[in-house]
Design a binder for these strands. Structure first.
Lengths: 234, 234
DNA sequence: AAATGGTTCATACGTTCGTTTAGAACATTC
DNA sequence: GAATGTTCTAAACGAACGTATGAACCATTT
């Protein structure tokens, strides 16, 4: 008899739990790739199980519903990145004591975990970056709520750090500058990850920097606009 | 007998064509709103016709398929914005003669048409902005190809103008800086348009500037990062 | 050797999808 | 005022969707 709630590892031995976890991982990988390419709504569970090489019933058995699978796909990538961001900021603020942390350092703590996630996250982690941009405004309310909560703590912490690092910055402009910064990072990373697949719009020669070079480019672009002490209004 | 290709206005009189165009417009408005909120794949034709108050067959009658409807939704907004961008740049370069156009002016020509489109585009034009970000990487190949073609000329023209305005800028970095700039504009505009509906992540007081103020904020943020003459690499 | 229980399998269920179609309703033209 | 052509309506089509079900499988335990 199947349990109504089939989640959780086996209660008896270890290997059974390993099989369980491995199948889950295979499904998550396949779903991540497809969600990133065609969106959650644009991907059917049949496409996922075909790509994963598992049975049609596997998704409902392991995740309950398609929506819950989508939630786990996001959570698996989002949580470690945002945890690393906050961890790095913690360390910077610990070192700085009462003094403000330089803007470049703050941005490095914000940007590096997102960019480096692709190496640690396996071969198809770049697919996930497409997923993030999609999820930020689209999907079902449950996923949307989770994503917003995930980013809330990051935004709060980094907003405070930037506000401390740029004394003359009008508080009312912080939200906008951070939105610009986030958009720049996000859009640039998207192009960096998909550099080979995307057409180069201009006729100027396009060069793809390595990972460290890209981080430098982002920080160099964002820093001056973010840290200007004068208001741009009026 | 219905024509296999029912598009195009009536061949005889005017009023018939007006009815035709009006129904098309109603459908386009409803589709734009729904596509912007839930994506093309996440929206069914039945939801569109219900929102538009027209019959289920109307979409296939007026647009052939759902995909072709999506294409027209994008085209209706994208074309005038990009035409205005190029028109403004033309005027700036005409005035400047052989001298380079200042970066702020170039950015104004790029940004203003996109921001001002919401006033001229009717009440639900802000829904369209959500649509753009979605379409930039998601939908079916036909729509994707169209969107990329739409932006190609804009990118080519503005890349050249920026390259001329920033003499020391390494050509290999232009693509990246423009990607950052575009991301900043886009993400900031998204937040500006949906300011009242989005949660404020930080606890700092959030102030929504008026249209002109927002344009100033974007330009002030992008300009220094874009026009730095030194390379950020190495 | 028999039994247990987590996992996988093939299959079916009821819905909803995009699209099609035949005819009604309407205005326009001759 | 009959004919013509365009727009709208209602109903239906097959296909694909997410999910549910029960038997088969298989390692582990008794």
């Amino acid at each position: 008899m199947n349990s109504i709630i089939p989640h959780g590892p086996a209660s008896s031995a270890v290997p059974a739990a390993e099989v369980h976890a491995k199948t889950r991982s295979i499904i998550l990988d396949a779903a991540e790739k497809l969600f990133g390419r065609k969106g959650v709504e644009g991907t059917s569970v049949r496409q996922i199980v075909t790509a994963a090489g598992v049975n049609l019933g596997a998704i409902n058995y392991h995740f309950g519903t398609k929506d819950r699978l989508a939630l786990e796909v996001f959570a698996r990538r989002l949580e470690p990145v945002n945890r690393a961001r906050i961890g790095r900021l913690d360390e910077l603020e610990r070192q700085a004591g009462n003094r403000p942390v330089p803007v470049e350092r703050i941005l490095d703590a914000l940007i590096r975990p997102a960019v480096e996630a692709q190496d640690e996250g396996g071969p198809n982690c770049d697919d996930f970056m497409r997923l993030i941009s999609r999820c930020l405004q689209e999907p079902n309310p449950e996923v949307k709520k989770f994503v917003e909560e995930q980013f809330e703590e990051v935004a709060r912490r980094f907003d405070a750090a930037i506000l401390k690092a740029v004394p003359g910055l009008p508080p009312g402009e912080l939200l906008w500058r951070m939105s610009f910064a986030f958009g720049a990072l996000h859009c640039g990373q998207e192009r960096w990850l998909r550099f080979d697949q995307m057409p180069t719009p201009s006729e100027t020669p396009a060069v793809k920097p390595d990972r460290e070079g890209f981080i430098q480019l982002v920080i160099a672009f964002i820093t001056p606009g973010l840290s200007s002490p004068v208001s741009a209004l009026r």
